[in-house]
Design a protein around this nucleic acid. Structure first.
Length: 421
DNA sequence: TCTGGGGTCCTAGGACCC
DNA sequence: TCTGGGGTCCTAGGACCC
């Protein structure tokens, strides 16, 4: 029996959430802004029609917004998260197979309903979500997740907000009318490469030879092509896989220059990250801190750096995480720059109850890893080239390693930000 | 002046061990 | 000191997603 997947997608999710709490916003242009009110992250249909692009900097479209009296909201993630949860829980009334894919999307397993008119069933789901939660959604259905994503795009423009691609006699024609870059799994880089090679539509990719796809797009690309052909390669994931990393980072409203101010920010980020960890009963093995100057600084001197530090043992202890993160910050901070962004990332997450020390990691190897990590942090921010480094006492003579580093950058082992043992 | 935040996966290539 | 293959682990970098 062929699989049938549905993709349910909330329309203009953040804007729709705001409308639930203020119905006078209906049929008016509305946008929602990112943190610091920096740029546009959600638009109502009316706002899209005015030509306000997704991701536009707020200051760039300010006059347009004023002229057309667009309603503007700062984002309210607590509200959106709560609304999202209500929608996702509502889906469970219609199928036991629900994969929460993002804050505003879920894949639904609809196999069991093959005997029924699938589109009619989806219209029922849509009506009930509208009634129970007050949010408009669209649902696309097909034999694979990739096709269901395409179907959901078509559903947005269909009367009734539902589209079943599995039974559509127009399938080839619809694929031909879909830009290859609009296919799930084909981003801007691959789209450019594909177009340069004459693959313009989803149908072109569907028809391309496997060997060519494998060579140019790796296995993920091949999987995408197979999915376009109706062969399901990406299954539903009812339980989310365990989290591997968590990040708290922010762009500052104003440039920050002083170490103590950066320290305040980093402490806050570290504390939040630690909270996330404890909420999910996880522990972290490493913490990374990073700071950067602006991306749009023009002539200004740029600087970006990060440091990764291993905890003595896996931890979720807020105080410890803050302390270690601040230590990392001190290592990478350079005065005289205008910093625009900082962040703290917790790595190597594991379930709290299964933590055990790694009994098999010899100390020398641990040190080796830390040196390489420290160098890679430098490396990542400076570019390519080659350096050699080592330290005395590691066997006969110095142990030497090679790492790529930026041209023109030289260092001696004594320069390295590590303790010598 | 003002340009988001948080994730995952795949591959190539080096280190290391036998 | 050189030769060499096979396997594993690790990382950066590049790609993707919302």
């Amino acid at each position: 029996m062929p699989r049938i997947f549905g993709l349910a997608d909330c329309n203009n999710f953040y804007v729709s959430c705001e409308r639930v709490f203020d119905p006078t916003l209906k049929r008016r242009p509305v946008v929602v802004l990112s943190n610091n009110d920096g740029c546009i992250i959600a638009r109502s249909e009316e706002a899209k029609a005015l030509g306000i692009p997704m991701g536009a900097a707020f200051f760039e479209v300010r006059s347009l917004i004023r002229r057309h009296r667009v309603e503007v909201f700062s984002s309210n993630y607590a509200l959106y998260g709560d609304m999202s949860q209500r929608v996702m829980e509502s889906f469970a009334a219609f199928t036991p197979e629900v994969e929460v894919y993002s804050i505003d999307e879920a894949f639904l397993g609809l196999d069991g309903f093959s005997g029924r008119d699938i589109a009619a069933y989806c219209r029922e789901i849509r009506a009930k979500i509208g009634q129970w939660v007050g949010l408009p959604i669209s649902i696309g259905t097909a034999e694979t997740k990739t096709l269901a994503k395409l179907a959901a795009r078509l559903a947005k423009k269909s009367p009734g907000g539902v589209f079943d691609l599995s039974s559509s006699p127009l399938r080839r024609r619809l694929l031909a009318a879909t830009e290859v870059g609009d296919v799930w799994g084909v981003g801007s880089r691959l789209a450019r490469m594909l177009k340069a090679n004459g693959v313009h539509s989803a149908l072109d990719l569907h028809d391309a030879p496997d060997a060519w796809i494998r060579k140019r797009m790796a296995v993920t690309g091949l999987r995408t092509a197979m999915e376009l052909r109706g062969v399901s390669c990406i299954d539903l994931e009812r339980q989310p896989p365990p989290r591997q990393t968590t990040v708290v980072s922010r762009t500052f409203a104003r440039p920050v220059e002083r170490l103590d101010e950066l320290g305040d920010a980093v402490s806050t980020f570290a504390a939040r990250a630690a909270e996330k960890l404890r909420r999910e009963r996880l522990v972290a093995g490493n913490v990374a801190v990073f700071i950067t100057t602006g991306r749009f600084a023009g002539e200004e001197r740029r600087y970006a750096n990060g440091a990764t530090i291993a905890f003595p043992g896996p931890t979720s202890h807020g105080g410890e995480i803050i302390r270690v993160a601040l230590g990392g910050l001190e290592r990478i901070y350079r005065p005289g720059y205008r910093y625009k962004k900082a962040g703290v990332m917790l790595l190597d997450l594991a379930a709290e109850d299964r933590q055990q020390p790694d009994l098999f990691a010899p100390p020398a190897r641990e040190r080796d890893r830390r040196v390489i990590k420290a160098l890679d942090d430098i490396n990542r921010n400076l570019g390519r080239g080659t350096i050699r480094y080592g330290w005395p006492g590691a066997g006969p003579g110095w142990r030497m390693q090679q790492r790529r580093l930026s041209p023109g950058y030289t260092t001696r082992w004594t320069d390295l930000p590590v303790a010598r043992g």
